[in-house]
């Protein structure tokens, strides 16, 4: 049996997360260079059909655990399945997306399998069997190279950190038996925001801070929409109750790495910068020419955001048409 890499896919209603494709692409890169097999694992209910698509990202095999009990994520039920797989397949490396779910799942699985885990990584180096992952620490103020030892080394990958590369894999589907477990944590209610682009996976993020002066984010939302991106906020705006906690960008909120980050009415506190410094291009819009955010931005515009942001939206619409 060749050595292998397991990539744990993440899906909702048969739709895979972007970070799943990123993890497969990264897994394929390492697998090809080392003669490993890349095996995708899909857990859920009625997912066999959509699972086939993962062959386009290089999966040599696709293991499907299909069961009504796996329809909604439950770390207890998922870990049970994955722990069995890790024992059976003895992978060199297990990859996850560092989504909320991926972080919980990888932590539980690593603890159960007593395996090395590096969370939220932005690079993996695999040389002669030695695995090193690079991950931000201290809210991105430092990057750490972490060496992983033992079998079934586990790495979760930060969304938007790895390129998606398509490649054909054989993608043979293998269904595995799942024994029903009675999860100790019962799901009572789901409140999902459908159709919203996930902040951590968005290519563009437009954030509004205290400079918004209130809960009306229409100008921000319109710019985010023409960019096909998501709306973020500073903690000040969240604390004011203008935006939900889930929108907070920063050291104690979400870390985002979009191609374009537009900070509107945000001063640039160190905790905010921690959440967006890894964006490819940062634009700051602030009426105070001395605002510290300008020191960390690729492009800065001084002025009133309520005039500038709609004008920018309009200009983008012009190019698009």
């Amino acid at each position: 049996m060749p050595n292998m890499i397991l990539a744990i896919a993440e899906q909702t209603d048969g739709q895979f997360r972007k970070v799943t494709y990123e993890a497969l692409s990264e897994g394929k890169k390492i697998a090809s260079a080392n003669g490993f097999e890349l095996v995708a694992v899909v857990l859920g209910s009625n997912v066999a059909e959509s699972a086939e698509a993962l062959a386009q990202y290089g999966a040599d095999r696709i293991i499907v655990a299909d069961s009504p009990g796996l329809a909604d994520f439950s770390s207890a039920a998922y870990v049970e399945v994955l722990c069995g797989l890790v024992e059976k397949e003895a992978p060199e490396l297990v990859l996850f997306g560092a989504s909320v779910q991926g972080k919980e799942l990888s932590a539980c699985l690593a603890a159960r399998c007593d395996a090395a885990l590096a969370t939220d990584c932005i690079a993996i180096a695999w040389e002669n069997g030695a695995a090193k992952a690079t991950r931000p620490m201290y809210g991105g103020k430092v990057l750490a190279d972490v060496q992983l030892e033992g079998s079934a080394r586990m790495v979760s990958l930060r969304p938007n950190a790895m390129a998606i590369v398509r490649s054909e894999g054989a993608g043979a589907i293998e269904k595995i038996e799942v024994s029903e477990v009675d999860p100790p944590v019962k799901l009572i209610e789901k409140n999902m925001e459908t159709g919203k682009i996930d902040l951590t996976e968005a290519d563009a993020v437009v954030s509004g801070g205290r400079g918004m002066g209130g809960a009306d984010y229409a100008v921000i939302e319109q710019l985010a929409e023409v960019l096909g991106g998501a709306v973020g906020a500073s903690r000040a705006a969240v604390d004011e109750g203008w935006r939900p906690h889930a929108d907070q960008v920063g050291q104690t909120g979400k870390v985002v790495s979009p191609n374009l980050y537009v900070a509107c009415g945000i001063s640039g506190a160190i905790q905010h910068l921690a959440g967006m410094s890894s964006a490819k291009v940062i634009v700051a819009i602030n009426k105070d020419p001395e605002a510290p955010i300008f020191m960390k931005s690729d492009y800065g515009v001084v002025g009133d955001l309520f005039e500038l942001v709609p004008a920018i939206t309009e200009e983008i619409n012009k190019i698009k048409s």
């Binding site: 007593d114 090395a116 430092v142 990057l143 750490a144 060496q147 030892e149 940062i282 800065g300």
Partner: peptide, 20 residues
């Protein structure tokens, strides 16, 4: 430990860019 920090580095410093 199975997970060991073997090196720390500072991320590329962001500097002030262009004012529009």
């Amino acid at each position: 430990p199975k997970t060991k920090v073997v090196g720390l580095k500072t991320p590329p410093e962001r500097t002030a860019g262009q004012m529009i």
